[in-house]
Design a protein around this nucleic acid. Sequence first.
DNA 1: TATTGTTATACTCTATAACTATA
DNA 2: TATAGTTATAGAGTATAACAATA
Lengths: 161, 161
Amino acid sequence: MTQNAGKDSGAQTGEAMDLGAMTGSLGFLLRLSQLKSFDTFFHEMKGLEIRPGEISVLMLLDRNPGIRQGVLARALMIKRAHMTKMVHAMEGAGLVCRTVPDADRRSVQLWLTDAGRARLETVQGPFLAFENRNTSGLSDADEAMLKTLLRRYLGLDRPNA
Amino acid sequence: MTQNAGKDSGAQTGEAMDLGAMTGSLGFLLRLSQLKSFDTFFHEMKGLEIRPGEISVLMLLDRNPGIRQGVLARALMIKRAHMTKMVHAMEGAGLVCRTVPDADRRSVQLWLTDAGRARLETVQGPFLAFENRNTSGLSDADEAMLKTLLRRYLGLDRPNA
DNA sequence: TATTGTTATACTCTATAACTATA
DNA sequence: TATAGTTATAGAGTATAACAATA
């Protein structure tokens, strides 16, 4: 429709915006925070051609060689169907290989290839440096507290995962 | 490839998983936390057929009648091109209307229609009730602290937005 | 019967660039 | 020249369900 407004009643044309009750919504705050952190990631890791998902898979497979595909999917909270595509893409890129264990021949175990480990080498240093740089704009104490609370929210506090 | 593994070297077939350095990554924690919070949202708001994005637009337009489309897009950290599609969809559903102000005829102002306000009425109560229910599993103090730190991270602390 | 991974489909979200109309 | 919004296109991500192999 896009009608033309002769009057200009109640309109605020500036940049300011009243977020109202949304500033009290944990989901809303997490959504915006995640978008901001990914923006920062892409800005700081620019040139390495790496995505957050790929780097976490590389680091997790390095730490957990032979992990089953479904366990990895659950840990990253992504669907099995999507994990299949992700893993196949990384296998196509020569970064991971897949084996079927005799113990349960339905499942698939994942391992880094030499190329996968080399890729991790290339990427892990800059990533950990970026993480240590504290690009959040928070004080060190606030950032540490924020991470602690997020781990607690996720149930990663205890020695489980 | 999917080779068969005769041996079973180093493999852990259980559920446990070592997240290693990823538990120190703010982006990783925010990503998982956001996924978890959306899962909770869909579980708690099931039956209302509402999505997080739609509810925030409804509430923001209610608070900021006549806001310009681009300002809303920036506040929600989504691209203008995507905002166009979102707004057109909501206009097609009769929830919002768009006007072109004389002051700047390039821009578009957004308003809730009566149907949009009715939709908000239907949805806002359950949503605010859900928000007040504290479904995070954190203590009230921890949840409040978490929200405070996220607002600080987003720069929503100060009386700006 | 239940589970693991796969395939197929569709829909949402995102990224990019070219385009228009206005400023 | 720059900006606001639009359009078109392509690529990720996601949800769902049906399926085969295995448990």
